[in-house]
């Protein structure tokens, strides 16, 4: 009876794992197939779609645009996020609880609301559609990920260390740079990696700001899947799946990222 119950449990978990991995499991074979881009199981084997992928200028330019925007917005988000974290955890600011919610706000406010807000303030500045406007918008959307991880890390650090530096005559900036910042490096890398991934994948806010010559990667993928129905996208999707699994593996092996994600 008990072992029967256990077996049912394992079957349920196996089905749930299948559900979780299903979209990835179908993309890979389809990307190496030569049949329709919505057909599974696919027929034939070919790497034509992958070679076509790297020859496609529009896709390549979207990849570079998204990577550039992600890099710039992540640098801003890490800087702002770490400053926010030290202010919240160690500073003498009023209403710290509310302040923390404020910095996590972009996670709660609907992305369309944020997107409309950026559109409203960027139109009079004449920068809608520029990579700068998209990078600024992304920096706000991804900042909470850095704030969360940096505040959690900072709360576990011992303030006595930098106090010792001050007592021994260090200036505030020097104590911060040489004592606190090095201890925050793992949090900055983990939070930054997460922020980078979110930026590369950001669709909603970006869709308010793009123009014909600044189509970011997720929007390009959407267009290829739903409007153009262009099979090259299968290779792009397959590549994304493979790269993502490599990134997850490295993040887990190097930084044990699941420790930072537990809520």
């Amino acid at each position: 009876m008990r072992s029967g119950l256990k077996a049912v449990g394992y079957v349920i978990i196996a089905l749930l794992l299948l559900f979780i991995l299903a979209p990835m499991l179908v993309i890979l074979p389809v990307s190496f197939g030569s049949s329709g881009m919505f057909q599974f199981p696919p027929s034939g084997f070919s790497i034509d779609r992958y070679s076509a992928l790297f020859a496609d200028d529009r896709i390549m330019s979207s990849i570079w645009l998204s990577l550039t925007i992600a890099l710039v917005s992540t640098l801003i988000a890490v800087l702002v996020g770490v400053l926010a974290a030290v202010g919240i955890v160690r500073g003498g600011m009023p209403f710290k609880g509310m302040l923390e919610s404020f910095f996590l706000g972009p996670l709660i406010v609907p992305l369309v609301t944020t997107g409309i807000g950026f559109l409203i303030i960027f139109v009079p500045m004449g920068i809608v559609g520029s990579p700068v406007s998209i990078a600024l918008a992304h920096s706000v959307v991804i900042c909470p990920y850095v704030v969360r991880i940096a505040t959690a890390t900072l709360r576990q650090l011992d303030p006595a260390l930098e106090e010792a530096a001050i007592v021994h005559g260090a200036k505030e900036g020097y104590a911060f740079r040489t004592v606190v910042l090095p201890q925050l490096v793992p949090a900055m890398i983990s939070g930054g990696m997460l922020a980078l991934l979110v930026s590369i994948d950001e669709y909603t806010v970006t869709s308010f700001l793009i123009q014909a010559n600044t189509i970011t990667l997720p929007i390009r993928i959407y267009q290829l899947v739903s409007l153009d129905i262009n099979p090259v996208v299968t290779a792009l999707a397959g590549l994304t799946v493979i790269l993502s699994f490599i990134v997850i593996f490295v993040l887990e092996k190097k930084f044990v990222i699941h420790k930072y994600l537990e809520m």
Partner: peptide, 25 residues
């Protein structure tokens, strides 16, 4: 189990389009 979190949502939704399409599994 949380690995999809790190994967592009656009790509995952395309995967679901294959799974649920009338030529799908």
């Amino acid at each position: 189990i949380i690995s999809p979190m790190f994967m592009s949502l656009t790509v995952r939704l395309y995967g679901w389009m294959i799974v649920l399409s009338n030529e799908g599994p």
